[in-house]
């Protein structure tokens, strides 16, 4: 469960000018929700995702993740939270080049405390996204859609409670997008919490809840019957 309370984030630009990217965001996301966040570029959605993903800290406000006060954690503990509780999926996949799908998926396991059965667990994650037969392919040998599915498998391998996807279909054609989105649908049905940033209304419609932001604030929060 994610609880954000009056979150603000202020950056100081090179010229010394302060930019208020988030101006008091309060938000509560329950376990198992499928949330789409929509906002024009530069309106704070990436910063919000980074804060939810424990990559960044808010300037002020409180953030509780499964009851833990994140803003009080040190850097190593945040790394551990990212490793265990959060799975990231990026717009540009972020796979290591010339490294097999299996090894890419294993990457979070290297930084986890549980090092047992790395091959089996990574293999299972690849099975879950339907790429069990592409384990030993390197990214260059895979289509964009397949690469994104490898990235999704990587986000799943440590069995996190939350998946954070930042425009996961932004670099994909329509067919691949559909393929990737259906995987997210399935993961949601399996009970995972999914938070997805997107520009596309079509994709947002798959989510049970759409949050729209503008100028660092939430302007609408619509729940739909799933």
């Amino acid at each position: 469960m994610i609880e954000l309370k009056d979150i603000t984030k202020t950056y100081r630009k090179n010229g010394g000018m302060e930019v208020n990217v988030l101006q008091g965001v309060s938000l509560r996301i329950e376990k198992g929700e499928y949330v789409a966040i929509m906002a024009p570029s530069g309106m704070g959605k990436s910063t919000l995702m980074n804060i939810i993903g424990c990559l960044d800290r808010p300037s002020t406000g409180e953030y509780r993740l499964d009851g833990i006060e994140v803003e009080k954690m040190d850097d190593d503990s945040l790394s551990s939270v990212r490793n265990k509780k959060i799975g990231f999926v990026f717009q540009s996949f972020h796979l290591l080049p010339r490294t097999t799908a299996l090894e890419n998926v294993q990457l979070p396991l290297i930084y986890s405390t549980d090092e047992t059965d790395m091959d089996a667990r990574a293999g299972a994650a690849l099975d879950e996204v339907g790429l069990g037969d592409r384990m030993h392919h390197v990214p260059g040998e895979l289509s964009g859609g397949q690469q994104q599915r490898v990235a999704i498998a990587r986000s799943l391998v440590n069995d996190p409670s939350i998946l954070l996807a930042d425009e996961p279909t932004g670099n994909l054609d329509t067919a691949s997008s559909t393929e990737v989105m259906s995987i997210f649908d399935k993961l949601h049905k399996d009970g995972r919490t999914i938070i997805m940033v997107t520009h596309s209304d079509e994709i947002a419609q798959r989510a049970g809840r759409v949050i729209k932001m503008r100028d660092g604030r939430i302007v609408s929060d619509d729940r739909r019957a799933a």
Partner: peptide, 12 residues
């Protein structure tokens, strides 16, 4: 950045 996001600590 990716490794950090996936849970690598600074020392890793």
């Amino acid at each position: 950045g990716l490794r950090r996001a996936l849970g690598a600590r600074k020392q890793d």
